[in-house]
């Protein structure tokens, strides 16, 4: 158990060691900065992509058509039955008249539309558009609606949702793999930095151990040094990412929003609320783990 004086000693020595081995410390801070910066970039990409996917999924609905000459009351009943399913988020009704009006506006010239007069060639095209709470429920909800009496046809965009889901999964897996790789590299480099620090102070450590210093006491300053590297190496990329996020999203939106409708970005405040503690946790965690494990190994060599 550390006493307050020992804690003070460790802090003082840790800072001293940090400045004494400036070269190693700078290299470790730079590595940590690069890793957390990359982590931040991947975090932006994953979070924004997931958000875009979720938005896109929300616009993918199931369209339900009814048997010919079904009464409006029965259509309302069918609507209530669909709404009672907990997997259903909302339903929107579109009458045959609305469908025809929309069709005319979208696909027919005014002259051609006028030739139809008051006739509605889509008079059996009243429909519900059903949105599920989660895109994964689309196929099961579609099957359930098909069994309702009075339902003629159910169209779902299963292939589109499957594509969106697989893109989402792919991006998440690749990003996680890359993040893990970066974290492993950072841990390795921190370990090398601490190993070099210990080698440079081998004589001092052996004296400390011969006069009765416990491993905890010897480890203290190096752990503090590692934690400082972790904190500094996390703060720098957070600041850099915060300064560049708005500018970057603005440039991307200006260039590509006309080609990709679903290109929308989360506000910086939402992203950084999670990214700041996450980056600090990773930075401090990696440096603590890296220095602790390395010191355990190195101190066994100096007995």
């Amino acid at each position: 158990m550390f006493k307050i004086t020992t804690l003070g000693y460790n802090l003082k020595q840790g800072i001293k060691t940090l400045f004494k081995s400036k070269g190693y410390s700078l290299a470790a801070v730079a590595t940590m900065t690069a890793c957390i910066f990359m982590f931040g970039i991947f975090y932006f990409v994953i979070t924004n992509l997931q958000n875009m996917m979720e938005n896109a999924e929300k616009t993918v609905g199931i369209t339900v058509f009814f048997n010919d000459n079904l009464t409006y009351d029965r259509i309302v009943e069918i609507g209530d039955e669909i709404k009672s399913d907990v997997r259903v988020l909302k339903i929107e009704y579109k009458s045959a008249e609305e469908t025809w009006a929309e069709y005319k506006e979208k696909y027919l010239s005014p002259e051609l539309a006028e030739t139809f007069g008051n006739d509605n060639p889509l008079e059996n095209s009243a429909s519900y558009t059903v949105y599920t709470t989660n895109v994964d429920y689309q196929s099961s909800v579609t099957a359930a609606i098909r069994n309702i009496e009075g339902v003629r046809q159910v169209n779902s965009a299963e292939s589109l949702t499957e594509t969106l889901q697989s893109i989402n999964r792919g991006v998440t897996y690749v990003s996680f793999a890359l993040i893990l790789l970066l974290l492993a590299i950072a841990t390795f480099l921190i370990s090398i930095t601490i190993s070099m620090g210990v080698s440079a102070h081998r004589e001092e450590i052996s004296i400390m151990k011969l006069i009765g210093a416990t491993d905890y006491f010897v480890r203290g300053p190096y752990i503090v040094e590692g934690l400082f590297i972790g904190v500094i190496g996390s703060i720098i990329p957070i600041v850099l990412l915060r300064l560049s996020y708005d500018k970057l999203t603005q440039v991307i939106t200006e260039r590509f929003s006309s080609s990709f409708e679903m290109l929308t970005f989360l506000p910086a405040s939402t992203l950084f609320k999670a990214l700041i503690p996450l980056s600090l946790l990773i930075g401090i965690g990696i440096s603590f783990l890296g220095s602790y494990l390395t010191l355990n190994r190195e101190l066994r060599r100096i007995d």
Binding site: E203, E204, I207, K209, L210, I211, G212, A213, T214, D215, F217, D303
Partner: peptide, 20 residues
Amino acid sequence: GKIARYRRGIGVVFQDFRLL
């Protein structure tokens, strides 16, 4: 884990002084 405490009962002096 007990070696450090054991060594506190022994004083050691070396040829090369080993001062910091």
